[in-house]
């Protein structure tokens, strides 16, 4: 589904990704872990098309299409979804109005008829129940005054509404207590199926107790330096990132 080859990227003059290689197949859950500053969030941002980052080399194919030339909204249309580490507050724009616009623009991109008010409401009710999110929250301005947990639930709710093929969760667990993590993870798990994939970007192992990965990759200095199964995450948790740094150091 996703094939990343030798991806290099920088922000302003700072080179951050130094050649990432990663293949994700439908139905898989991959976790990207790594110490602060290793490039985890940059990878997530570059895949979603954040304009501040400049891709300086490599290629990314998503379902056979080169996505690096696509705008963020086209990537969303293709089926990529990025759950933000810091969801943006937009006073004056209700969550409902925003999601309705987003869903219909994505449908348009995919060559589908836009939902009318009734169809949209039905879909929303269904996903609200699935994500355990309340109507009152969705009637409010987008993320404005939401708690950390509410913001992340809103992200996953939007994901549910947009039905992406690849969901990228950028530090979705940051700032959440264990109950909030459980709710968010539960939401993600309900959306998993054999046709979609999840890329979890996280600093800590604890989210992976709830969203269990098939593969774990360790990012360090803008490269994947180690890959393994979920046991790798546990090992990192136990031994800290220093052992990776040491290993990489020895190789060099």
């Amino acid at each position: 589904m996703l094939s990343i080859k030798n991806l290099q990227a920088r922000i302003e003059e700072k080179q951050i990704l130094n050649g990432i290689n990663l293949d994700i197949k439908a139905g898989e859950v991959h976790a990207i872990m790594g110490p602060n500053g290793s490039g985890k969030s940059t990878l997530a941002s570059v895949l979603a098309g954040r304009p501040e980052y400049e891709v300086t080399g490599g290629a990314v194919e998503f379902l056979g299409k080169d996505i690096l030339e696509l705008s963020p909204e086209e990537r969303a249309g293709e089926g990529i979804f990025l759950a933000f580490q810091y969801p943006v507050e937009i006073p004056g724009l209700t969550t409902t109005n925003f999601i309705k616009t987003a869903v219909n623009e994505v449908r348009k991109y995919r060559g589908l008829e836009p939902y009318d008010a009734v169809q949209f409401l039905k879909l929303m009710k269904e996903k609200m129940a699935l994500m355990e999110i309340s109507q009152s929250l969705l009637s409010r301005s987008l993320n404005e005054g939401f708690s950390g947990g509410e913001k992340k639930r809103n992200e996953i709710f939007q994901m549910a509404m947009l039905e992406p093929k690849l969901a990228i969760l950028d530090e979705t667990d940051s700032g959440l207590d264990i109950d909030a993590i459980r709710i968010v993870a539960n939401g993600v798990n309900k959306l998993r199926n054999k046709d979609n994939a999840v890329l979890v970007v996280t600093h800590y192992q604890r989210l992976l107790d709830y969203i269990v990965p098939d593969f774990v990759h360790v990012l360090y200095n803008g490269r994947i330096v180690k890959s393994g199964t979920k046991e790798l995450a546990l090992e990192l948790e136990e031994r800290g990132y220093d052992f990776i740094k040491n290993e990489v150091g020895q190789e060099a």
Binding site: E73, A76, G77
Partner: peptide
Amino acid sequence: FYLRSRGVSE
């Protein structure tokens, strides 16, 4: 960027 990342056109 947030809006666009959800598929909303520029």
